[in-house]
């Protein structure tokens, strides 16, 4: 068992340190505001949609069991199909998020480069 620690990590400072005013300046920059706005336009509606779509299931199944027992294809009823659809909806939202997030990464990269340049090309 290799027991020796190579470095003291806890006592070490973060790899990137900056003064309060630097953080404030980045946070107020147009690039950062753009990033946050872009994130919000995807994440907020996506979150609300999946929460509403998901809770529709227990609400409908719990309070309208007769309706949800309606048979649609052979013996397969609405309740089962709606439950199954949840899996696909979750996958679709995840895929859309990954696509949108590539955009976030691009915006974040500009901010990162600018910040590290300001530090003297760390």
């Amino acid at each position: 068992m290799a027991n020796e620690a190579k470095k003291i990590e806890v006592a070490q400072p973060k790899q990137y340190q900056a003064s309060q005013s630097t953080w404030d300046k980045i946070a107020e920059s147009k690039e950062f505001q753009d990033l946050m706005a872009t994130k919000k336009t995807f994440i907020v509606p996506a979150f609300i949609f999946f929460v509403v779509y998901y809770f529709a299931l227990p609400v409908l199944v719990g309070y309208a069991p007769a309706f949800m027992s309606t048979k649609v294809i052979g013996e397969v009823n609405l309740a089962y199909l709606f439950a199954l659809s949840q899996f696909f909806v979750a996958w679709i939202i995840a895929a859309l998020y990954v696509r949108a997030a590539n955009n976030f990464d691009r915006l974040a990269k500009d901010i990162l480069e600018k910040a590290e340049d300001a530090k003297g090309g760390k």
Partner: peptide, 27 residues
């Protein structure tokens, strides 16, 4: 029994509420 039918575990009066509460804890 039709095992595809809801309600075999979560029965009224508190079943539906328990189901929503479970969903909240998971999500």
């Amino acid at each position: 029994k039709d095992f595809l039918q809801p309600g075999l575990r979560y029965k009224p009066p508190y079943g539906p509420l328990d189901l929503i509460s479970l969903g909240l804890a998971l999500i």
